[in-house]
Amino acid sequence: MHVAIPAIQCGNFASVVNIIAKAGGTARLIEDPKELEAFDRVILAGVGAFDFGMSCLEDGGWIEPLDRLARGGRVPILGICLGMQLLCRRSDEGVRPGLGWIPADVLRIDVEPGSGLKVPHMGWNTVKVMRPNPIMPTDGEEQRYYFVHSFHAVCDEPSDVIATALHGQPLTAALGRANVMGVQFHPEKSHRFGLALMRRFLEWTC
């Protein structure tokens, strides 16, 4: 399986490439959207601010070709962290519209004052898988993942929520519909749990 990672900004792409190799696939950073056709799946990864992420996609000419893949329904697409938030309509963090493939808005994480909870939601958390899906096991075994984020996606349709993590309130840990999935956590930094997720992503056919 051959995964394209649009090289949209400085992010921790090395770790994503590493885990895909460990999961038995190959991944390549690509600079030119025309190259997308040569790959059978896409990972949108990145760290940083929402508007910066969208402007990188726009400046690189990624939006139209990615939109075609997303709506074509055949090529699996996975957004990681900021990459997941970019799948949504908008974010409290910026003013630019997102890709809008998932009907969801990205809101600032609110915690009760005095609760001792901090923002960003940073560290290892367990997740609750809400429904059968192509990337996360539903066998009931506890899964934990590494999170770092200050904003969270809120879906219009509960059926788009794949998993949640508790941080004062349930936060969307994974979302998706059809061939588009997104995870708020970092599978590339989540030991065997992230590796299992990546293997499933590589095996997933739409």
Binding site: A14, S15, N18, I19, K22, Y146, H186, K189, S190, R192
Partner: peptide, 11 residues
């Protein structure tokens, strides 16, 4: 450090 990072599937 690059070799370290290649071995670390955690932060």
């Amino acid at each position: 450090i690059e070799q370290f990072a290649g071995e670390c599937f955690m932060p």
